[in-house]
Design a protein around this nucleic acid. Structure first.
Lengths: 340, 340
DNA sequence: CTGAAAGCGCTAACAA
DNA sequence: TTGTTAGCGCTTTCAG
């Protein structure tokens, strides 16, 4: 069977306590015994068991990551960057896709609690506030990414959605679009993006048109429908800001399905800058979230929390950036004339 | 602190053994005590600790999933379906992206072994054969998906790559293409797909042209370069079979960058049927892997292995299907003439 | 600097 | 049907 600490101790002619000390390298051990023990450990291919260590109260070096859907490129990319940072730090991450379903959220969290994970990263869309509060009550470290629930006292990292919406809209405005619509999902992040959109419009002296603000579920299909709705209006927009890339792809498809061309007839800007923005045709102008940094950062935040290195909760905003590709341009004159 | 089995036992006025029995519901317990214990468990919000159970040799209900890259849509989709099936069965999955890097593969596996995972699912691209053999020697259940290494005695599930390549090529042939090229990565699965490609060509009386077979790393960029290489030949192909969707996207981009149009000037077919095939323009004709079923299936296979329910190793092939979208069509006459 | 021993929370004989 | 008890592999005082 697998070697245990006893085997090592016996072979090295020391006690298990000594072995334990060299493993965790604490306590004072003479260089000689340390070397000897280390050698035996190698010879026996000894691997300390996490389960046993966890039982004595040590960390498991495992965290739970709850995201809405691993198959969604945005979350997959986030997950990957979290995982990478985790591995650098020696922590494994178990991933759970919740589909924004409260039952699943609760079930997965309680499962992971039983498995003694050291903490949780909750990603955008986590809706079950009671579960979070419960975790907090149990003093289990939690960090949230790409979502914040202001009522919760939790470390939070997100992109500045307001600013992102503002940037997107200013870009469209700078292209001289006058009729700009927005499609958002029903979520706080979209609310903020839409606030930014409104602000940009007002600042430049435009009216905010409620007909130009539409909500949709976050999917290609949703984007398609929302775009159709917009384009069917008597005075359709010449530019559409979709609050994420998935929606934007749907919008592109709807526009093209009408025989219109992007960006000449309708300009489209997305949000997230996932791989989808680079594979669509035309390539999508979008607001980039610094996904990689976000993953790293949230992991670091959580680890600090786990190690008890800090007590103040933090709420951090990272700045999004405009990435111009080919889905936005000045409105063509004909469209302008025809519709104004 | 958290309630333990002792707390429950005390409150219920029974022994911990009894509690243990109702938890695992084995042994004979009177209905009355069972109910009582259950109630106390609920009252105390008692959650059995997995770490402790694992220590006594029970399963951890956690498995490790090693994939090349979680940010790659194909693997993200696979991971999601594995995760789903896992949750149905009560097992969590910890994911590790290896980047096909042997050191990472080894490091992650040994980490997870220490964490006493019940088994591993290894996905395509896992190159470190010694690690697998080591696992096998330790009697740790392993299952491989979308990849098979014939020398290894392991449960294996993959799509019939040979047939997939055949299907793709036959589709192109049925569209009356004469000059069909293929782009594959350096991997067994691509080898098989290319074999299918050759077979289809030969069966229909075409010559296999070595200049039409090119290898590339699996990425959009790689697809782009390979396509350029192909299109620069004196007698360029009218159709290209890319061995995965990522490559196919790159091919589309390269073709379009030359001012040619897909599918009129060049037809393109991919492989995998990931989300990318639906977001590109034109939407990609591709060979679909039954990703969802594969995830479910491989999980079931592994679980059976873990439960010792079967001793014979299996190698299963699922059949791929052609999904026709808009990236393939008959070669336009002008192209035919110009080039033949 | 090193070791003995008491748990951590649970399972699984074996008794009763 | 229920309880006693001996571990599982490791950490951690506390002595030596």
């Amino acid at each position: 069977m697998k070697a245990t600490i006893y085997d090592v101790a016996k072979n090295a002619g020391v006690s298990i306590a000594t072995v334990s000390k060299v493993i965790n390298n604490n306590g004072r051990i003479s260089d000689k015994t340390r070397k000897k023990v280390l050698k035996i450990m190698k010879d026996l291919d000894y691997q300390p068991s996490f389960a046993a260590a966890a039982l004595t109260g040590k960390r498991t070096n495992t965290i739970g990551l709850l995201i809405p859907d691993l198959a969604n490129p945005f979350f997959a990319e986030i997950a990957r960057s979290i995982e990478d940072r985790g591995h650098e730090l020696g922590v494994s991450v178990v991933m759970c896709s919740t589909d924004k379903n409260k039952e699943k959220e609760e079930k997965y969290v309680s499962l992971l609690v039983r498995k003694s994970v050291d903490g949780f990263i909750l990603a955008s869309g986590f809706s079950n506030v009671e579960v979070v509060e419960d975790l907090l009550k149990k003093k289990i470290p939690v960090a949230m990414i790409a979502q914040d629930v202001p009522t919760l006292l939790v470390d939070t990292l997100s992109v500045d959605d307001y600013k992102g919406g503002y940037l997107a809209t200013v870009h469209l405005l700078s292209l001289e679009h006058k009729r700009i619509a927005v499609i958002g999902e029903v979520a706080r992040s979209s609310d903020d993006r839409i606030r930014g959109y409104k602000e940009a419009l007002q600042q430049s002296g435009h009216l905010v048109h409620d007909d130009y603000i539409v909500r949709s579920e976050s999917s290609i299909e949703g984007g398609r429908k929302a775009a159709d709705h917009l384009l069917n209006q008597s005075n359709p927009p010449t530019a559409i800001f979709a609050c994420n890339d998935l929606l934007a792809i749907g919008v592109i498809q709807a526009v093209q399905a009408r025989g219109l061309v992007v960006p000449n007839d309708v300009s489209i800007i997305g949000f997230d800058n996932t791989i989808l923005a680079t594979t669509s045709d035309p390539a999508l102008t979008t607001i980039a979230q610094p996904i990689h940094e976000m993953g790293q950062f949230i992991m670091d935040l959580l680890i600090q929390e786990i190690e008890g290195k800090k007590t103040v909760k933090r709420r951090m905003l990272l700045l999004p950036e405009l990435v111009v590709r080919n889905s936005t341009a000045k409105p063509s004159v004909s469209v302008e004339k025809q519709l104004t």
